[in-house]
Write a protein that binds this DNA or RNA. Structure first.
Length: 649
RNA sequence: GCCAGCGUAGCUCAAUUGGUAGAGCAACUGACUUGUAAUCAGUAGGUUGCGGGUUCGAGUCCCAUCGCUGGCUCCA
């Protein structure tokens, strides 16, 4: 393999095998992942050194494909956007403008209200800046000079940021032409590198994410080193729109959201089939995992919510009402009812772990602006369970729940990430209790070897939690499963059990969900499968269609057989062409179509067409039923007829 | 709740500078009797989200309100 000769800025020469990635070269030379990133590529046998080195770092070259490279690239894009905005509206004050997963944003404070047309103007100005080929120069200033510089420029937000930096912080700036920004860095060497970009949307955002602060105007954008990559990304966004669960939910008649009940979804017959299948599956696996099921009331009195603490800690989110002059509230969570259920009997340590599940419908008054299809609603169904146990059972039980959740997600083929959320500011309980419970959850995660990230201060007010997050079609993540260790409610409700010593003790309680919310899970499910549910979930599993009216009797005969086999069947016996019936069935995303005509009557067969595989061929009804029943029983994610076709071939 | 944008037939969208709402698909009726992604013809369908205002005249402009979308905040 040919070697690549690289001349470094200090004049020294290094030789690498051709094909070595720039990233590896950078690591090799610098011996570490340096804080400055530069985007570059090895082409052929030479390396373009023109964009090579920062003043205070050794050679650090990253490709756009590396996280650091993309980050630097987008961060520079963000600076270019800010520079463009400052040129167009000089009075604008800059807040923060970081790189994010798929692009970048910048928060601005200006009297000018940005409208969508402004994005084009800003893009045009950005193009100029890119063309000007401005190099990004880093410089550091002592605190007082840094403050002076930003104050002179009227950048109040930057002044605040500098004031909040720790004493020993290095205060760095980046300059590109006439534009200077307080910035810790990671930039490409020149504005010229930002080949393709697009500003995507406008949004409001509170300064520092605090709703008591001023609302700034945020502009989101994305950028790529090649136009083709940008096009590809924009195409992906278009594709994602097509699988949006709100769109598909309407098209497939799964659910409806109406003005009459914002945030309160209606489940239509098709959606109800999917929901019930999900619940059937859920009950099956939970029974196997040793759970019992209960149901508690939707409405309970004020005293209960005071006991639980919700009346004070969750009041803004609760729907309250008066009944016979007494205060009641609609449950926002199932736990208090679960506590009362626990207390209906004297419990023994021998009953532990006691796993009480509840498919509970809860109502929460979410902010109107937070509502989002099925993902964020005001009434939803939690697949809840409260598990009561001994302290020494905590780790194993958390592991059990993690396994259960994992196996459920695996059934749908979902990948997920885990977060551990710790004590929030507004919380109940002692420091010791929090330390103990947080350690218990983290210990279980570590023993399981699960990757997780810590979400400091994001726990529930009554305990720390482990969250399982799934992604929607736009890669936005949604919390679904959660496991919360709760030492508050057992105390507040004075829950006890009789231990082996014959004395009363306080049980440990886990509060957990796997789907999280059936509604949200269904939303994720729709987007993941783009509406093409696996057969076991599909509202209509088999669509029968006649070629001509004379085939209707035979079709009804087949329909009866499939019905008898427990399949969800629908017959299209309209006097339409078969092409049209197939087209409509495909659009309804029915997994299987049976085409019935003269040949089928003569041979006593059905002609099978699969939504995913196309024409499968003719077979006897019995063979068809046998195969599809297996596919359903296995909760297969793919059509089993594919395997059959492969075997025959 | 906050910032911005949007709201026309069941769905997807039209409607010059304000001039009196239209198309495709779906639906319905009829003809056609069809072999793997759209047969043809006809019929019907809208107080332009709701409520005010400006105007000779408002889907177009203004105000208010409800809802939706993208974010922020919050959270399953």
């Amino acid at each position: 393999m040919a070697d690549v000769k690289i001349t470094l800025k200090d004049g020294s020469v290094k030789v690498y095998p051709k094909g070595t990635t720039v990233y590896e070269i950078a690591k090799d030379i610098s011996g570490r992942l340096a804080k400055e990133a530069i985007v570059g590529e090895v082409n052929g046998t030479t390396v373009d050194l023109s964009y090579e080195v920062n003043e205070d770092c050794s050679l650090n070259i990253y490709k756009f494909e590396d996280e650091e490279g993309a980050h630097a690239f987008r961060h520079t894009s963000s600076h270019i956007m800010a520079q463009a905005v400052k040129r167009l509206w000089p009075e604008t004050k800059l807040a923060i403008g970081p790189a994010i997963d798929d692009g970048f944003y910048y928060d601005f404070d200006t009297d000018h209200t940005f409208v969508p047309e402004d994005l084009e103007k800003i893009e045009a100005e950005m193009k100029k800046i890119v063309k000007e080929d401005l190099s990004l120069e880093r410089f550091e200033l002592p605190r007082d000079e840094a403050l002076k510089l930003m104050a002179e420029k009227g950048e109040d937000y930057k002044v605040e940021l500098i004031n909040d930096l720790p004493e020993d912080a290095v205060i760095s700036f980046y300059r590109q032409g006439d534009f200077v920004d307080l910035c810790a860095g990671c930039h490409v060497q020149s504005t010229k590198k930002i080949k393709s970009f697009k500003l995507l949307n406008l949004a409001g955002a509170y300064w520092r994410g605090n709703e008591n602060n001023k609302m700034l105007q945020r502009i989101y954008g994305t950028s790529f080193p090649k136009a083709s990559l940008l096009d590809q990304h924009l195409e992906m966004l278009e594709e994602a729109k097509k699988r949006d669960h709100r769109k598909l939910g309407k098209e497939l008649k799964l659910f409806a959201l109406m003005e009459e009940g914002p945030g309160f979804p209606f489940f239509l017959p098709n959606g109800m089939v999917v929901k019930n299948e999900l619940l059937n599956y859920w009950r099956e696996v939970h029974k196997e995992a040793g759970y019992v099921e209960i149901e508690t009331p939707i409405i309970l009195n004020r005293e209960l919510w005071q006991t639980s603490g919700h009346w004070y800690h969750y009041k803004e989110n609760m729907y309250a009402l008066k009944i016979d002059d007494e205060d009641y509230a609609i449950k926002p969570m199932n736990c208090p009812g679960g506590m009362l259920s626990y207390k209906t009997e004297l419990r023994s340590y021998k009953d532990f772990p006691l796993r009480m599940a509840e498919i509970g419908r809860v109502h929460r008054h979410e902010l109107s602006g937070a509502l989002h299809g099925l993902m964020r609603v005001r009434a939803f169904t939690q697949d809840d369970a409260h598990i009561f146990m001994l302290p020494e059972q905590i780790k194993d039980e958390i592991k059990n729940v993690c396994h259960l959740i994992d196996s459920i997600y695996e059934t749908f083929g979902f990948s997920y990430h885990v977060e551990l959320s710790t004590r929030p500011e507004d919380s109940m309980g002692t420091d010791e209790e929090w330390a103990y419970t947080e350690a218990a959850l983290e210990g279980a995660l570590k023993e399981l070897g699960l990757d997780y990230r810590i979400n400091a201060g994001d726990g529930a007010f009554y305990g720390p939690k482990i969250d399982f997050h799934l992604k929607d079609s736009l890669n936005r993540t949604w919390q679904c499963g959660t496991i919360q260790l709760d030492m508050q409610l057992p105390q507040r409700f004075d829950l006890t059990y009789i231990g082996s010593d014959g004395e009363k003790h306080r049980p440990i309680m886990i509060h957990r969900v796997a789907f999280g919310s059936i509604e949200r899970f269904l939303g994720i499910l729709i987007e993941e499968f783009a509406g093409k549910f696996p057969t076991w979930l599909a509202p209509v599993q088999v669509k029968l269609m006649t070629i001509a009216d004379r085939h209707i009797d035979y079709a009804k005969e087949i329909e009866a057989k499939l019905n008898a086999a427990g399949l969800r069947v629908s017959l299209d016996d309209r006097a339409e062409k078969i092409g049209k019936k197939i087209r409509e069935a495909q659009m309804e995303k029915n997994p299987y179509m049976l085409i019935l005509g003269d040949k089928d009557i003569d041979n006593q067969t059905v002609s099978v067409r699969s939504r995913d595989l196309g024409e499968v061929g003719a077979m006897s009804v019995d063979v068809f039923v046998e195969t599809i029943l297996k596919e359903i029983k296995d909760r297969s994610k793919v059509a089993l007829f594919q395997a059959k076709a492969a075997k025959e071939a």
